[in-house]
């Protein structure tokens, strides 16, 4: 795989996906820092791995043969609604308020 070029556009795109807004100087700063880290991380490509095609990280997790635990379908107490709402930065009644969503 060819080397990743971390340009301003890439920083902007990634910040966009992560819902971060960056000032121009910040874009420069992260461009430099991400460049450094990514070029280090790219050494992973030189690892010769011999795990075989069937090996998958997602199915290999946990004790072999075990399945994710399951709980009984029993209702437990919800949070008192005041407690669920009291830390909301903005609310109306018992709903969280956000700027109008455009669909």
């Amino acid at each position: 795989m060819s080397k990743i070029q971390v340009d301003r556009e890439l920083v902007r795109k990634v910040a966009d996906l992560a819902q971060l807004s960056l000032s121009d100087p910040e874009i420069g700063l992260y461009q430099e820092r991400l460049s450094k880290v990514l070029s280090y991380v790219e050494q992973l490509n030189s690892v010769h791995e011999s795990l075989g095609q069937d090996w998958r990280p997602d199915t290999a997790r946990g004790v072999p043969g075990s399945s994710t635990p399951e709980r009984a379908d029993l209702v437990s107490d919800s949070l008192p609604v005041e407690e669920a709402m009291k830390q909301a930065p903005a609310r109306i009644g018992t709903a969280f308020q956000v700027p109008r969503i455009i669909e």
């Binding site: 109306i92 009644g93 709903a95 969280f96 308020q97 956000v98 700027p99 109008r100 969503i101 669909e103």
Partner: peptide, 13 residues
């Protein structure tokens, strides 16, 4: 669910 008002939307989880 999001419910849309005139200026705000409201979120019910």
């Amino acid at each position: 669910k999001n419910v849309h008002g005139d200026e705000s939307s409201y979120v019910d989880l």
